[in-house]
């Protein structure tokens, strides 16, 4: 690993989000599901936004969704992203309902089509962190 490059920002992992990132390391995409009412949401929250129950779990989901929006950064706000410019960021509506912000895995499509069907791909950053990304599926 080239340590001369500045590190990219890492997720803020806390008691609420830890389950999500542990699942990612194991290649599982998950959303927070309320143990009481079944409401599914993302990112994690201290209580269910639907019924306010504090009993929640990170539930595995299909990893499939559709493209809601995307942008391409032509400016790097972090030095660590400078080599990536221009890079794309996408917003995915998961089949289970919640929206999830991510990147396209590998090279982004030149003109991503809103509504395109996507599926999750896991990119290992290091032994502690695996980022979920998305690719177009047939």
């Amino acid at each position: 690993m080239d340590t001369s490059l500045p590190a990219k920002p890492r997720p803020h992992i806390n008691a609420i989000s830890r389950g999500f990132w542990e699942n990612c390391r194991r290649g599982i995409l998950s959303v927070q599901r309320c143990d009481d009412c079944g409401h599914q949401h993302y990112p994690g929250a201290p209580v269910c936004p639907s019924c306010l129950s504090s009993r929640q779990s990170w539930a595995p989901i299909s990893g499939r969704g559709t493209l809601v929006s995307w942008v391409r950064f032509h400016r790097a706000y972090w030095d660590s992203f400078r080599a990536d410019v221009p890079y794309a960021v996408c917003l995915v509506k998961l089949d289970e309902g919640p929206l999830m912000l991510s990147n396209f895995a590998g090279d982004a499509p030149a003109e991503p089509t809103i509504g395109a069907l996507l599926e999750v791909v896991f990119e290992k950053v290091d032994s502690d962190l695996t980022l979920p990304k998305f690719r177009v599926r047939d």
Partner: peptide, 15 residues
């Protein structure tokens, strides 16, 4: 959303 390179108010409005 920083780990995926999303920041700035401008990016939210671009999306």
């Amino acid at each position: 959303h920083a780990p995926w390179g999303l920041t700035s108010q401008g990016a939210l409005y671009a999306l």
